[in-house]
Amino acid sequence: MQEAKLIRGQRTTAHEIAFTGLFAALIAVGAFIKINIPVQPFPMHFTLQFFFVLLAGYVMGARRGAACVCVYLAVGLAGIPVFAAGGGPAYLIRPTFGFLIGFVAAAWITGKLTALRPGAGMAWRLFAAFWGMMAYYVCGMVYFYGISNFVIHMPISWKLVVINCFLITVAEDFVLCVLAAAVAKRLMPFGECL
């Protein structure tokens, strides 16, 4: 009996490792999948990274979803070029690195809110993704402001940060929230085996 429980526990751990690796890889690949939507008067351009971050939160849950993103960040900071513009520890002083940190918050919040109402419909999943997106933007904008003004000494105002780092890109990311919330319904049962 004890041996059966141990084997079952090891199988769960193997599934967790496999899913963590899978989502870390999908987030890395998502950085290089660029989608252009020629909507007039403002064309939309985005990658699928954020989409996979949200799916990690939905499928893996808060703790495991955030762990997937942490694995992705560790691989990139170790020097493997999985970030959109390369990799390595020097990435830490790029003003946009805060958005990568924001991925951790987005996956955690999306997973946490989803777990509050298991089996909820599209509206709740979209609500969870929306707040994950807001956490992503807060982390990214605060980091962008701090690194720009206090580390690399290229002063920027909060107004410019909000315009350049939020208003210009939030519509595309909201589209990804909608897509992730729709796709999550099919994928979330796979997370139940963890």
Rank of each mutant, 00 (worst) to 15 (best):
I7S: 06
R11Q: 09
R11Y: 04
T12G: 11
A18T: 13
T20A: 09
G21D: 08
G21W: 04
L22I: 15
L22H: 01
I27F: 06
V29N: 03
G30H: 10
A31D: 02
F32S: 09
P38T: 13
V39C: 03
Q40A: 14
F42K: 10
M44W: 04
L48E: 07
F51A: 01
L54P: 08
V59M: 12
A66N: 01
A67F: 09
V69T: 08
C70F: 09
G76V: 14
G76R: 06
G79I: 07
A90D: 13
L92G: 07
F97R: 09
F103T: 00
F103Q: 00
V104S: 00
A106L: 14
A107R: 03
A107T: 06
G111T: 04
K112H: 09
A115Q: 13
L116W: 11
L116M: 14
M122H: 13
L126G: 07
G132L: 09
G132N: 09
C139L: 11
G140S: 08
V142S: 05
V142T: 03
V151P: 01
M154V: 10
P155I: 06
I156R: 05
I156L: 09
S157W: 03
V161M: 12
I163Y: 13
T169M: 13
D173F: 08
F174L: 15
F174V: 15
V175I: 15
V175W: 11
C177F: 10
C177I: 04
K185E: 12
R186E: 08
P189M: 09
C193G: 00
L194A: 02
